[in-house]
Design a protein around this nucleic acid. Structure first.
Lengths: 374, 374
DNA sequence: TTGTAGGCGTTATCAG
DNA sequence: CTGATAACGCCTACAA
């Protein structure tokens, strides 16, 4: 996976106040008047240097005499030259585009990731191409291969859950395009090692805080609605909650342990079963906010009050967490920050297979959690 | 705004089972074995034709003899040649990227638009570059200009509210890049005409249905929480609701007419004021779902029940509409369909300044609306 | 219908 | 440090 460092994106040089000979000044005025898109040739002839020298300036080559550089930069600023990414890309065999690839149904999550990536991309001359995909489609891998190869992406960001997909990681290894994965930390499961830089979220930390929180509120009969077990995040979150409960002498009630799949409907179904049992829980932990919202519906549908009759906790701190009533106690991940860091790491070109930056999750206490009545 | 039609994106030819001479077959096998990215030159030499002929096949030029075309396509399929968008773009002076430009805080809306656009782009060889922006930033216009000019976008899709921005429309007119705007129909307001193709949503139709709906439920004391008046959509929606009420002999109670700005917090504030009045409304119309969710919070905060004590209606049918309890009666816009159509229209190249495709909104009745008690 | 020469705007090579 | 010349992969113009 040895990779040449990405070419440095273009950055606008500051205009200097250097003086030009009268003739050159006129030539520049002429040029500006024509209002045509400037090319490297225009800069070269106006600056009386070769294209290659201009190219060197553009790419911050150290082997340019300072005054030559200044002169070129002056012209560039004056005529408003911007190198064409297409032409540069053709020569570099690499575009000035980052690809964001995902198969994630959570709109808020995706948009936050996009925003974070764009935060870091802004002003760099790079742009973001989004590529949702369907990991269950027959051409899943081929579709992505084509996307990356055709666009000759400068970098790729993979979001969960496909960032865990073996087939995809193999593809990335083959493609020789810088990649970074965003993923939930897979603590102690013994998967084969992954040779890709990653931004990992420590889902456990915040979940454990959730366990503490429930203990502090006096809850003893605690239910759990699991996430989709196909995703590492589901295991991580569960492990986190269990750890938090265990260190307080508590546990998930074995008879109140429901499967789920991260969907709103699964949340309704699971919570309905839980709340209809003879000895219902005083608190329900849902593996994400969507299912927590489902639990609200189940509770309200049964005429229960939140948090008086049942405490509910979620995970994600998605928009929905504050929209449902009462606002949901949940665990927040710094999504946008993660995306920023992922993008910056990718841009820096200084990452290795070992690169792994961890972000901590944390509990946000809101109105859905209350004192246990029993 | 005269524009040359966009070059047709590349589409994969079907592999045929044509027979090759032994030597050519070998050459192909050799090529495939080398596993290097194929170029137009490879195809040309293997097919024993000139690059230009291959180019014609790629671009579906009619002036290629059918059997020549087949032969070239056969080679293309066999060696897996895909034309390089960068090189094509350089020659065409136009990239194979569509830009989606917006300044919209609604994640669901944005993602739906992206999905719709990508639905239509899929398999076309075009990709989508997303470009959120800040219409209040100093460099708002320049930022977008640079984005479009540098990437030489093949097309641009503008979403509301910036699709209404005069400065931006002037820029687009100047830039000579195909654009399509997505916007709320501005019925009878006498703005200067807009010279850009547009996909318009008829927000009124569904809102009027909302008025009918409230009338049918016997509501008479009806409150309104307005959207941000800076957006045409706010006026359109209001006009729609008013029309629906009026044709049933009803109106928005003059003393229950609250300003708003589409934000959740504004919804809470306005609804709180409304519900605390001496003679509160039996129904509240909110200009979007976020504010409707805010109204839920206000109602619940005051110990009221929905819909027993107050009926609430929103607009958008955003995710949140089904997550809050009870599910919200709201007006749905076919966002994704609109994005698909916008994209297809842009791809077809057959649009004019006059192009204007209207999508109807419609009422979705859910649990938040009930019979008026008074 | 097909091919040749040249160009799109940039960078790589390798001399000076 | 700088520059001429040849790519990069494809398309347009003009010929044949």
């Amino acid at each position: 996976m040895a990779r040449s460092p990405a070419p440095k994106p273009f950055s606008q040089p500051l205009a200097s106040s250097r003086e030009f000979g009268r003739d050159i000044g006129d030539a520049i005025e002429d040029f500006i008047r024509r209002r045509k898109k400037a090319t490297i040739n225009d800069v070269a002839s106006l600056a009386r240097v070769s294209k290659k020298t201009v190219s060197r300036v553009i790419n911050n080559s150290p082997s340019v005499r300072p005054d030559t550089r200044d002169q070129v930069n002056e012209i560039i600023a004056r005529i408003g030259f911007r190198p064409d990414p297409q032409a540069r890309g053709l020569a570099f065999r690499r575009s000035f585009l980052f690809g964001l690839i995902y198969d994630n149904p959570n709109a808020t999550y995706v948009v936050n990731m996009q925003m974070g990536a764009l935060d870091s991309l802004r002003g760099s001359g790079l742009d973001l191409v989004v590529h949702p995909c369907d990991r269950h489609a027959d051409n899943f891998i081929e579709d992505i291969r084509e996307f990356i190869e055709m666009q000759r992406l400068a970098g790729v960001i993979l979001l969960p859950p496909i960032a865990e997909d073996r087939r995809l990681l193999e593809l990335m290894e083959e493609l020789d395009t810088p990649v970074i994965r965003v993923t939930a930390r897979s603590g102690d499961r013994n998967d084969p090692p992954i040779h890709t830089a990653q931004i990992v979220s420590n889902d456990r930390a915040g979940c454990a805080e959730g366990g503490d929180h429930l203990a502090a509120l006096g809850h003893k009969r605690i239910a759990f609605i699991n996430g989709n077990p196909a995703y590492p995040s589901a295991h991580e979150r569960r492990a986190g909650f269990e750890e938090g409960l265990r260190r307080n002498g508590l546990e998930i009630a074995p008879d109140l342990d429901e499967p789920g799949d991260y969907s709103f409907d699964a949340g309704i179904a699971a919570a309905t079963r839980l709340l209809k049992t003879a000895n219902p829980p005083t608190a329900i932990i849902a593996c994400n906010d969507q299912m927590a919202a489902g639990a609200y519906h189940a509770a309200y549908g049964l005429g229960l009050k939140i948090p008086e009759d049942v405490t509910i906790i979620g995970f994600d701190d998605a928009d929905v967490a504050t929209r449902i009533y009462p606002p949901l106690t949940t665990v927040r991940l710094p999504i946008r920050d993660m995306a920023r860091t992922a993008t910056e790491t990718l841009m820096s070109g200084e990452m290795t297979e070992q690169t792994s930056i961890v972000f901590q999750s944390k509990l946000i206490v809101r109105g859905s959690s209350g004192q246990a009545k029993r």
